[in-house]
Design a protein around this nucleic acid. Structure first.
Lengths: 184, 184
DNA sequence: TTATAGTTTCAAGAGTTACTGAAAATACAA
DNA sequence: TTGTATTTTCAGTAACTCTTGAAACTATAA
């Protein structure tokens, strides 16, 4: 299978981008290919299209499975495993955010919590702890909010995001209503 | 300068975390150290505290400067350059988001835009292009929204985030008001 | 100007991660 | 069961990134 030029550029770009994150080139390219592919692909097809060894693709797919970013399915009458990226891009976005939180944010939060439990033994430690507290609170606020917002319907979310900063007007309005006599 | 245990753990954790992102251990540790330090530090102090070579620290600081994550200042009567992380954690958060957008999102968006300009030469390419369009729109929506929201005052932002999903109630309310006779 | 404190660059070596082909394991069909 | 198709593992090598010490450079003080 020869890659079409449009797809080729997309795939190469994600290979490069992947390496800026923790993800390696192979994994980036495999995902990009699955993302734009009109049908499920098996490992041999992927290896051929991208010019990687079969074993490299196997490892890449395993990595993607551990990120829950690909779905595995069997085709009737074919023993091989076929892979695809989810149809809905919001699902992809959510999965990615969720996994990153699990792998990167949660361990950091737990380290910070431990550190905040300790009694500082000096002024410098007291200061350090104060900074850690600020970081802890920021992370909790942001991830907590993110977790909640993710549960909204994509439509509501799009509506919300399309509002941009006008959202702050809405907040002011809310405050006024609260202050009105008879307001809840 | 011996690192205090509390600070030590924090610094090591960020070293590890750094390597999961594109950032290397040295850079992660240097930033962590600056973040919790009660005063500005010079390169020698950093090198000594973390046990890295002077030149390694120099390169790390350069990297951090290119991310705009550290501030450089001279102390009166001292030739050496002193470094610090911004006091306000929201500033740090914003800078990080801004730089990541510039380095990772913008190039991706521009690649996608180019790809969307082209005329697909097959059904497969048409499908690929459709997927790229979905990705493009999602990225534009999210980053555009992010850009706007960043400009809000931290207080407003905190208020907004603390609302979580209750924000959707606010949206419904807005719609009702719009529908009311006499509503704008 | 020269001397010196401080910073950056760079080539080389150390360390790490990616990738491959071969071999082992697994899954299924006959 | 045996045979065959498919996937996974793994040891070795290739490629890449990190780290260092030495040398070059820069800025300031005398």
């Amino acid at each position: 299978m020869e890659l079409q030029p449009l797809v080729q550029r997309f795939v190469l770009h994600f290979g490069e981008m992947g390496s800026r994150w923790g993800i390696n080139r192979t994994v980036g390219q495999i995902y990009a290919l699955l993302f734009v592919s009109p049908r499920m692909l098996n490992a041999d097809e992927i290896a051929e299209a991208l010019g990687f060894s079969r074993s490299n693709v196997s490892m890449g797919l395993k990595e993607l499975q551990s990120w829950k970013l690909v779905r595995l399915q069997h085709q009737p009458g074919d023993r091989r495993e076929y892979f695809s990226a989810p149809e809905d891009i919001w699902t992809i976005f959510r999965t990615l955010a969720e996994e990153r939180r699990r792998r990167e944010v949660d361990p950091t939060l737990s380290m910070l919590r431990d550190a905040l439990m300790e009694t500082p033994g000096s002024d410098d430690e007291r200061h350090a702890q104060q900074r850690m507290r600020e970081m802890h609170n920021l992370i909790e606020l942001v991830t907590g909010w993110f977790g909640e917002v993710q549960r909204l319907e994509p439509d509501t979310l799009i509506q919300l995001m399309s509002m941009g900063t006008r959202i702050s007007k809405l907040l002011e309005m809310k405050d006024k209503i609260k202050l009105m006599p008879g307001g809840k």
